[in-house]
Design a protein around this nucleic acid. Sequence first.
DNA 1: TTGACATATCGTGAGGTTACGATATTATTG
DNA 2: CAATAATATCGTAACCTCACGATATGTCAA
Lengths: 108, 108
Amino acid sequence: MTIQTEQHVEEQPQNGAAKFADAAECLKTLAHPVRLRMVQMLLEGRYTVGELAQDCGVPDNVASEHLRLMQRCGFFTSQREGRRVYYEVAEPHLENLMNCIKSRFLSE
Amino acid sequence: MTIQTEQHVEEQPQNGAAKFADAAECLKTLAHPVRLRMVQMLLEGRYTVGELAQDCGVPDNVASEHLRLMQRCGFFTSQREGRRVYYEVAEPHLENLMNCIKSRFLSE
DNA sequence: TTGACATATCGTGAGGTTACGATATTATTG
DNA sequence: CAATAATATCGTAACCTCACGATATGTCAA
């Protein structure tokens, strides 16, 4: 079995493992009940932080934090209009991915 | 001690938020570079713990732990043959989900 | 049986994630 | 201007995840 005794520095077997790091990062961002719910909502329209917060049952600052995380993954963009900030989907693959998730986990 | 301070209990607005908890759980299980790689491998055949461990560049016990987590989500099953244990995909939606992930995060 | 191999489990500690409260920022209204 | 509304940011503490090493379990072979 000759396990590589090289401490795990950066040295993943070059089988595209590096690519999985990005995917894992984004999946991790998606993997939260409140965030999934926000994605679901935003796939159907644009909403403000307050609207999303209320619908998800979390305080505004918590909602804001979740939205910031997802924005960093490129899922959403935001525009300010007056004192409100509207979020909307920016990642076109998000709908397809969400449908896969729903067909597996939510449809039965 | 174990003083549970009654965090915000279960009080999600009943918009199907509970369902997202399961989905988030499974997504979280998927959201790890090594585990994604294992899924990718096992979508193409059955492999032993040692084979998966070597391919992912992690020690056997670490691989075993990852596989256990995924088995708990119903992604895989395992059969022992001699001293080896073979894992294989048990969740039929996994392939579709993985294709979504790859088309978003790995194809560019 | 003893020993080796393959896998699994357990305890531990480092580091990450989360919700919360307090505070800060930005924009509107009086 | 001050006051309020909507959102964002920050520090903190509780909790969770992960990899590691040690050990345990299961299997086969001599």
